[in-house]
């Protein structure tokens, strides 16, 4: 897994490439928490190049969302591949996370 932290029109974007599993999710958690510790109000996660996610990856995002909610922050996802979207739906997390098709769509909401 590779993580790139990108600024898009003043918005913090975490662009993830590859597999998110029990081995790689601590690195993702570190990136996410580096933003939540600063109480960044809006964080977007680019899923376009995510090839796989397991329960530890999902748990990392749930934890991040819970922290962000304590200070009124927003965690947005975009570009989720079909197979990963099915996992979010099965977990009933498609109703919990803000999910958009693209960063432009996320930005407009």
């Amino acid at each position: 897994m590779e993580i790139n932290l990108v600024d898009y029109k003043g918005r913090k974007v975490i662009a993830v490439t590859g597999d998110i599993d029990m081995y790689s999710s601590p690195e993702l958690r570190e990136a996410l928490m580096s933003f939540t510790q600063k109480k960044i109000p809006s964080i977007a996660v680019d899923f376009n190049k995510v090839s796989y996610i397991d329960s530890s990856g999902i748990a990392t995002f749930v934890e991040g969302l819970k922290i962000m909610k304590t200070y009124g922050g927003r965690l947005q996802f975009f570009g989720i591949p079909k197979g990963i979207m099915e996992i979010f739906r099965f977990s009933k997390l498609d109703k919990v996370f803000e999910i958009y098709g693209s960063i432009e769509e996320a930005e407009g909401n």
Binding site: D54, S55, A59, V62, E63, K66, I87, F90, S91, K92
Partner: peptide
């Protein structure tokens, strides 16, 4: 419980699925 949104506890559901 899938309705109880919190970190962890999903892995077993993915196996049973």
């Amino acid at each position: 419980d899938l309705e109880d949104i919190k970190p962890g506890g999903l892995g077993i559901h993915f196996i049973k699925r």
